[in-house]
Design a binder for these strands. Sequence first.
RNA 1: GGCGCGGUAGCCAAGUGGUAAGGCAAAGGUCUGCAAAACCUUUAUUCGUCGGUUCGAUCCCGACCCGCGCCUCCA
Length: 466
Amino acid sequence: MALRFYNTLSQQVEVFTPASENTVRMYTCGPTVYDFAHIGNFRTFTFVDLLRKCLRANGFQLNHVMNITDVDDKIIRNAVAAHQSLAEYTKIYTEAFLEDCAALRLERPERLAPATEHIPEMVAAIEQLGAGHHTYSTEGSTYFKIATFPTYGKLSHNDFSGNLAGARVDVDEYEKADARDFALWKTPKEDEPFWESALGPGRPGWHIECSVMAIKYLGETLDIHAGGVDLIFPHHENEIAQSESLTGKPFSRFWLHAEFLMVEGQKMSKSLGNYYTLRDLVAKGHAPESIRYLLASVPYRRALNFTLDGLKSAAIAIHRLRNFKLRLETDRFAEGLNQQLLARTAQASEAFTESLNDDLNTAEALAAVFEFVRDANSAMDAGEFRAGNAPAGLAFLGLFDSIFKVLEPSATAGGLSDAGIEALIAERTAAKKARDFGLSDRIRDQLMEQGIILEDTKSGVRWKRK
RNA sequence: GGCGCGGUAGCCAAGUGGUAAGGCAAAGGUCUGCAAAACCUUUAUUCGUCGGUUCGAUCCCGACCCGCGCCUCCA
């Protein structure tokens, strides 16, 4: 069946195809680079990565833009405190973010768009909104006037009409005319960095950057806009208000939102001591691919309970898959082809694809993989697996890994070379043959200490790194 | 209070109007010189509670209880 997504805008699952030709124009909200990203952030970014891969698996090409928010209140505050320029400060965390993404095997979008490189375009957009009477200014800042956008609330499914009509009390007492109006251009406080512009000195509000960069690179109507659920309101709602006021066209056809991540059943927070950055977890010895697997294994629309136990389970599950792959590659099977098993492989592959096409049901897709692994292992044990079945099995694992990307172990520094390991194994085999089990066991233990696990199988000795 | 998501085995977590996927853990087994590793088997009469609709509900409807998110910055 065709690819389907749950669209927050319609609150329904809809069949997805790009609006024009074969290229998906997609915008996803990226990081605010004021600190290291945490695993909650990466839950969403992992979802976006899976989304990219599934779109491509459906034959679509991608034009995907992700913003880097490199100017905002927290960044300014931290940069000032660190006695660094905005650029110096954000460079550190932008690079850290990209390193973390690489560790998690997240693809780079076609374009990363830093907000600070698009200030003139934002100013122009705000001026254009002003010309359309969607803005007003107070005390040097410019605001978007929500009352000029009647469908405000359509994404978050909130009805603000009552508030807007009734809330205009004591306008003079507040900077904003209405509590829900939001800043497009903020006047700088003392010592804050700013840009000179036709709107006066200042810096852009958070929402305008996404609208401007999305439209600049992807056009007036996107195919997909994605982010975390917490962005639905007000961020994405505001993006819609701005963008549609600018263009008069729907801003995005599909809105996809990843649910929240919790840690050990609780909200992740620094005060609870359950706040993890990717780097924290890697430093504790957890493999990035285990983290990726855990984040990917729970369908994106379900809240994910991230636990250290879950992380161990993920590592072991990956282990099982790698073992299966190793077995396909190194076991000696009888010649021929088992047609029934070949059909079983094709069926698993279809089930896998179909699950992902169903709004990225990764849990179900994984079930298809593991069921196949069990059946294939059983066939091997029963001697029913044939040499001719291995390529299809490996191809299926290839399909799996083109999406999940966990089978290749992350590089670890040091240790024995492959050739060195092979030499020791040969030595041990010779010792075993001579029934010198003392020596053979010593070699085995020595390898084990180096993190090399040996397996004595019918097809000979097999080894892998722990 | 409004909007949204969810409560399925020890843990993580699919799913369907016709009787519960998968992973981890646990138990048993196969293999082995012994191990290790690997593999296999078993493991929810039951899906938050109470009603209703139905021949039949975990899945539909209603009420209630509990958890989470958004409503101010937040993935």
